[in-house]
């Protein structure tokens, strides 16, 4: 909530500037410049983070590289601007970045300040279990009622969030992700509830130790965002993302998805376009 307020305040502060410096043709500007200036973070695996070689990697980073590939036929022609979550909207408004892909949840409020692309991932809350533990899946957890303890990141809404899926479960809140997973490992908790993407990544990192309970809730869409008022640029980024999920760049998207979320995507059905089914 505090974070939202801060972001909203910041954004409000810079809305004035957004109107003043309306750019005519961002696509042409970027092509002329010869590289993309892309906004993302560096502290959230598997979205945007530094690997052992101190290289920026992640699913968001792959999306931005796809845009660069679309522009210059070269995914390396990107200059990454490291930004905190709070800086996402102001950096677009003040033209410090061409596009931001930083696990940005689409909300109507934000959509008044930036223009969102089509979503490239649907986030939600999931439940992770120990493989071979007391509870086999979501149904078992639900049947367990108040015997079940769920570890979760400390948050004002944590209790309600868990109870939306498991109304009777006990909720133990932890200060950090490692402690939350630790609780599951040590048996203090029967399941860990957090973002599906974090769970998928953690399970991909530690194969055969954990399993997904198979239930997700609290959906939210992750989209890239651009500065409002440049339809051609928005269309371009949309085309790149759309074709990554359904067209010529599907293999790149699927490889990235497999790398960061550990599961294989089946190719879109050939024939009638999937999006109109």
């Amino acid at each position: 909530m505090l974070k939202n307020l801060k972001t909203a305040g910041l954004a409000a502060l810079f809305v004035g500037s957004a109107v003043g410096a309306a750019h005519a043709d961002k696509l042409q500007d970027v092509l002329d410049r010869g590289y993309l200036i892309a906004g993302s973070g560096s502290t959230n695996a598997p979205w945007h983070f530094k690997d052992e070689n101190n290289e920026l990697v992640g699913f968001d980073i792959d999306m931005l590289r796809l845009i660069a590939k679309g522009l210059f036929d070269d995914p390396t022609k990107v200059e990454f601007v490291n930004q905190s979550g709070d800086a996402r909207i102001p950096n677009l408004a003040t033209d410090k970045v061409d596009v931001t892909c930083q696990f940005m949840t689409v909300t109507p409020g934000r959509a008044q300040q930036v223009e969102f692309t089509i979503p490239y991932y649907r986030e939600g809350v999931g439940l992770m279990l120990l493989d071979g533990g007391d509870y086999a899946d979501y149904e078992a957890l639900k049947a367990g009622g108040s015997d079940v303890t769920v570890s979760v990141l400390q948050n004002v809404y944590a209790e309600d969030m868990v109870h939306a899926a498991l109304p009777e479960a006990n909720v133990d809140q932890y200060e950090s992700v490692d402690l939350m997973y630790q609780a599951l490992n040590s048996g203090r908790a029967d399941a860990a509830a957090t973002d599906q993407s974090s769970l998928s990544w953690f399970m991909a990192q530690n194969p055969d130790r954990y399993k997904d309970a198979g239930f997700g809730w609290n959906p939210q869409s992750y989209s890239c965002a651009v500065k409002p008022g440049d339809q051609r640029w928005l269309n371009f980024v949309n085309s790149v993302l759309h074709e990554a999920m359904t067209g010529v760049d599907f293999n790149t998207y699927a490889a990235s998805y497999q790398q960061w979320f550990g599961s294989e995507l089946s190719p879109p059905q050939i024939g009638f376009p999937v999006e109109f089914k």
Partner: peptide, 10 residues
Amino acid sequence: QIISRTYLSL
């Protein structure tokens, strides 16, 4: 940045 990779936050 290291914490986000290793989860060794504390």
